[in-house]
Amino acid sequence: MDVTSSESELRALMLAASTGDASAYRTLLERLSSQLRAFFKNKLVLMNRGAVEAEDLVQEALFAIHTHRHTYDPSQPFTAWVYAIARYKLVDFLRRTKYSTRNVPVDESEELTARDNYAGVESSLDLDRLLETLTPKVKRVIQYVKLDGLSVSEAANRCGMSESAVKVSVHRGLKSLALQISKEGRP
């Protein structure tokens, strides 16, 4: 894990994940989270911001990566795609928390190569509270499928919904959680 993940490795994981390979996807998110953590900490330290805010951003970026997976074009570099999302989320975070964005370097050649595996910090995001913002039906589906790990068909049985309705609810629920996170103006 200490070896810097190369573009080709990450890209291969992403391609496997996009066919529904959950373990490839988990590995990908783990690697990306440590790279994102180093990236955000590095930027925030210049602005006297702490590790909790960096962790908030790591999670927001992971959420954004997840809900916008479909915008990755396999013919393009994967790290450039991730970096563009990370930088967008950083600028957005600084703007909504009223910080000048003038100091954010726009270095195009910058890559997500540094890593930070220290995942002990908790973000200020409270999953239970976020789940409360969903409709009860969607919340239940997310609980079954994404938190309890029931299969889609089991969840469909328990909720009395069709499998495709469950999938749509999960998709909508995650999108609305991502939106909720990006709306929060944490000072």
Binding site: S18, S33, H66, R69, A119, L127, V170
Partner: peptide
């Protein structure tokens, strides 16, 4: 929330990506 929790959540029952025909 810990980031590991989030990764658990996102990678559980992950659907294949529907490629949106941008063009």
């Amino acid at each position: 929330m810990k980031t590991d929790q989030l990764i658990d959540m996102l990678s559980t029952n992950v659907d294949p990506v529907k490629t949106v025909a941008i063009r």
